[in-house]
Amino acid sequence: MKQMITVVILVILAGCATNQSPTGRSQTLLFSAQQMDQMGAESFEQMKQQQALSKDKQRIAYVRCVASRITAVLPVGQPKWEVVLFESEQINAFALPGGHIGVYTGLLKVATNQDQLATVIGHEVAHVLANHSNEQVSRAQMTGVGMQLANAALDVSGVSNRDLYMAALGLGAQVGFVLPYGREQESEADIMGVELMARAGFDPSQSIKLWQNMAKAGGSQGPELLSTHPSHGRRIADLQQMQPKVMPLYQASQAKVKNSCD
């Protein structure tokens, strides 16, 4: 049985694509960009059907304004991004492959200005750009295959493949569990995200204030958004070290920014 498991896993790995992350990590990607886009679209539609959508036109316009400035500086060839504001006290946001961004109204109580909101949106979009979603779903697929071959099929515990993929996409709140991004992935998203916000004309120094606010939110545990992230102190220290690099990007972008979102 062990030999069979090994053979099947090797066959899967032989057919997967390899990639390098923004920091040079080797990534194992089992799914094509088209497959990831489809997963993202299906998951996003499911969330829109199951969760309350905000009807606050002013808040919706504000969130879309910040998101649109972030997505406007992405590499050429990106899809048109759909942005939805969910009515929930969750202090959270997410981005999915295929061009989908979700923000919860609870986040707006902690991200107190456009620059702080841009910090979170930039971070979440960076996860998609860096293929972190594909890494997570690929890991889930390989783990699922191994479990099934070992007679511990996922459906025994009531977890479907669809739920597993949604959890891997960062939507664990929908299915009761989550497959968290690793520390390296989170750090990569921080690096890419703060550069994105600076290029979009948002003040990167506010990223430090945002994570300080996050550290205070929700008591010692912090909000759900931080549950799998690096320590507050480490993240803030890393962002402080990045300021000399990203501030010139922010300053250079100021002439291109015509309207404030606030």
Rank of each mutant, 00 (worst) to 15 (best):
G182E: 08
Q3E: 15
S138P: 10
E42F: 05
V145L: 12
N19Q: 14
G172A: 07
G201F: 01
V103Q: 05
A217V: 09
P248H: 04
V156D: 03
V128D: 00
M147W: 06
Q49D: 01
R234G: 05
T71H: 01
H232P: 14
S207D: 13
Q114N: 03
V125L: 13
Y62P: 01
A93L: 02
V175M: 11
V156G: 12
V194Y: 06
Q240W: 05
I191F: 15
Y181W: 09
Q35H: 12
Q148P: 09
K245Q: 13
Q174W: 00
R59Q: 15
A173S: 14
S220I: 12
M192A: 13
D56P: 06
G182Y: 08
Q46C: 04
G146K: 00
G170E: 05
D56M: 06
E82M: 00
G158A: 05
M1C: 14
F31I: 02
Q114E: 15
L30M: 14
V73K: 14
I101S: 06
M36P: 04
S253D: 06
M47S: 10
L169A: 02
A93S: 03
Q3Y: 14
E135A: 07
V84D: 05
A150N: 10
L108P: 05
G193E: 06
S32I: 03
S260L: 10
R235E: 03
I70K: 09
S160P: 02
P180R: 06
A215V: 13
N19I: 00
D56E: 06
E224W: 00
A150R: 00
G102Y: 07
S205A: 14
E45Q: 15
Q35V: 14
R162Y: 07
N113E: 05
S138D: 03
L171R: 11
G170M: 02
S160R: 05
A200W: 15
Q141S: 08
I9Q: 11
V11F: 13
G176K: 11
H127T: 11
F31V: 02
G233W: 03
S253W: 07
A255P: 00
E87A: 13
D155F: 12
M1L: 13
A153R: 14
D37P: 00
M47G: 05
G77R: 06
D262I: 07
H232N: 15
Q20Y: 11
V7K: 15
N161W: 04
V63F: 04
D163S: 08
V7A: 15
H127Q: 11
A167I: 08
Q46I: 03
G146P: 00
A140M: 13
S43Y: 09
P97C: 01
Q38A: 13
F177R: 04
G24W: 04
Y104M: 15
V84R: 01
V128F: 02
Y181Q: 15
C65A: 07
S32A: 12
A237H: 10
L30Q: 02
S205P: 01
V63R: 02
P180M: 01
G218C: 03
A17G: 13
A167L: 10
S160D: 03
